Amino acid sequence: MDKQYVNARKTGTEGSRPAACDGIDDDTLQTIAAEIAGKHASDDFNKAIDDASQSVDDFVNGLDTEAP
């Protein structure tokens, strides 16, 4: 399911119930899918924070100032 999620985000295609999930009820499957989406959202958020922090650091380091 994780691979399908990543592929869907890249291509916009919809996933389907993986064979490994046969026999798992819909509620449990939806819970697993929500956990996967939540993990990726958290990872994306953390990367955005890291990227923003790096951009600020790069900007500050690029300032042309003299020491007092």
Rank of each mutant, 00 (worst) to 15 (best):
M1K: 14
M1P: 06
K3F: 10
K3G: 03
K3P: 01
K3V: 02
Y5V: 03
N7Q: 10
A8M: 08
A8R: 10
K10G: 05
K10S: 09
T11G: 03
T11L: 00
G12F: 01
G12T: 02
G12P: 00
T13M: 15
T13P: 00
T13D: 10
T13S: 15
E14L: 14
G15A: 07
R17M: 15
P18W: 03
P18F: 02
A19Q: 14
A20Y: 15
A20L: 14
C21F: 15
C21A: 15
D22R: 15
D22G: 07
D22W: 05
D22S: 14
G23R: 07
I24V: 13
I24K: 15
I24A: 06
D25H: 12
D25S: 11
D26C: 00
D26I: 06
D26H: 07
D27I: 08
D27V: 08
T28L: 10
T28H: 12
T28D: 09
Q30S: 10
Q30M: 11
Q30C: 03
Q30V: 10
I32E: 06
A33W: 02
A33Q: 08
A33L: 05
A33P: 00
A33C: 05
A34M: 06
E35N: 13
I36P: 01
I36E: 05
I36S: 04
I36R: 04
A37W: 02
A37M: 00
A37Y: 01
G38S: 05
H40A: 11
H40Y: 13
H40I: 10
A41F: 04
A41N: 08
A41V: 04
D43T: 14
D43A: 11
D43I: 13
D44T: 12
D44H: 08
F45A: 08
N46T: 13
N46Q: 14
K47E: 06
A48N: 11
A48H: 11
I49F: 06
I49W: 10
D50M: 08
D51P: 01
A52Y: 06
S53H: 12
S53I: 14
Q54S: 11
Q54L: 08
Q54T: 12
S55Y: 03
S55P: 01
S55C: 03
V56F: 08
D57T: 13
D57C: 02
D58T: 03
D58A: 04
D58K: 13
D58F: 02
F59K: 09
V60S: 04
N61S: 13
N61V: 02
N61F: 01
G62M: 02
L63T: 01
L63K: 11
L63V: 03
D64V: 10
T65I: 12
T65H: 12
T65V: 13
E66R: 13
A67V: 07
A67F: 00
A67K: 09
A67D: 04
A67Q: 06
P68R: 04
P68L: 02
P68N: 05
